[in-house]
């Protein structure tokens, strides 16, 4: 995912000299090509995320479109007040890019488990969360990010889905809009699994089980506080929605959908179930697949 992201950013930088890529001393074997091609648009801020994020706001105030790149929680939680005050409050054009969303770095322990980041990012009024799950979603998220002039959080997982044979590649991505990933056999079904982020494979596996064979798979890759009002209409179409995210339940994506549902004028009753990471994952180390299996994620 990160390689595809950097390819798209490198292409954009060719025609847009306002792009500035800042890294927090990370990105080995990922960012070198960008740095070589556009050295004036690349800054290694060192292991200093507070300064990197404050500087990003300063650069954005001078009309740069800044990308702050790091892994896991380093460019989110470590500098959360800089994101809150310096970037979000001033509505600056800064995209915080965290690679290793969810349990991508599961074997590296709790410091590297990015499983509370949605909770943080969705509490900022101007922030748009971009959590792509497929190649097409990455491309479209980046297209939206390049167009946008406001704060963004791009959460990248480790790998693209392997279980999705024919990925749906629609062209009508828009913030707050659900995208169809995979229909179930019963096309008339009023049930769906709604994902965000790099959990498409998990949803496909779920759908293969009898219990969920009657559920379509949709994703919502672009969301946030600004797009809550767009959810009512989409939620109301369904009898049942199962949300799926590689994040803790509290403050996460499912909670977001529940909040949207609780504030809408209901036509019918939509049943919403939340599937997220078990909080005990915090005390366990292991690679992503093992951790997910052990804690029965998406079961």
């Amino acid at each position: 995912m990160r390689n595809y992201f950097i390819d798209l950013l490198t292409k954009e930088a060719k025609s847009n000299n306002k792009i500035m890529l800042m890294v927090g001393d990370l990105g080995f074997s990922v960012v070198e090509n960008f740095k070589e091609k556009y050295p004036k648009q690349f800054i290694n801020a060192g292991v200093a995320e507070q300064n990197m994020t404050g500087m990003a706001a300063g650069l954005a105030s001078e009309k740069f479109h800044v990308f702050t790149y790091s892994i896991a929680n380093f460019n989110t939680f470590r500098c959360s007040e800089q994101i809150r005050n310096d970037i979000d409050y001033h509505n600056y054009n800064v995209t915080v890019v965290s690679v290793g969303g969810g349990l991508s770095y599961g074997a590296l322990g709790y410091s590297h488990h990015a499983i509370q980041d949605y909770a943080l990012m969705r509490s900022f009024p101007n922030m748009t969360i971009y959590a792509p799950g497929t190649r097409s979603e990455i491309a479209n998220c980046m297209k939206q990010i390049f167009k946008s002039k406001s704060p963004a959080y791009l959460r990248l997982g480790k790998t693209l889905p392997k279980n999705l044979k024919k990925p749906n590649q629609p062209h009508d991505y828009a913030p707050g809009k659900w995208t169809k990933i995979l229909e179930c056999k019963n096309r008339e079904s009023k049930k769906c699994i709604l994902t965000t982020g790099a959990v498409i494979d998990d949803a496909v596996k779920m759908q293969k089980k009898e219990e969920f064979s009657n559920y379509h798979i949709y994703s919502l890759p672009i969301w946030g506080m600004k797009y809550k009002t767009l959810q009512a209409q989409q939620i109301n179409k369904w009898d049942e929605i199962v949300t799926l995210e590689d994040h803790l339940e509290d403050g996460g994506f499912g909670s977001y959908i529940l909040e949207c549902n609780s504030s809408i004028q209901k036509v019918g009753e939509t049943k919403i179930k939340l599937k997220s990471l078990n909080k005990n994952v915090c005390n366990t180390v292991g690679d992503q697949d093992n951790l997910k299996e052990h804690f029965k994620f998406a079961h």
């Binding site: 300064n51 500087m55 650069l59 310096d86």
Partner: peptide, 23 residues
């Protein structure tokens, strides 16, 4: 130029602006 109130935010922001001017 910039809203402050929580200390330790002004200098990193100023450094960002200084980099912008240089570049």
């Amino acid at each position: 130029e910039f809203s402050t109130g929580s200390l330790g935010h002004g200098l990193p922001y100023a450094v960002g602006k200084a980099v912008a001017a240089k570049s």
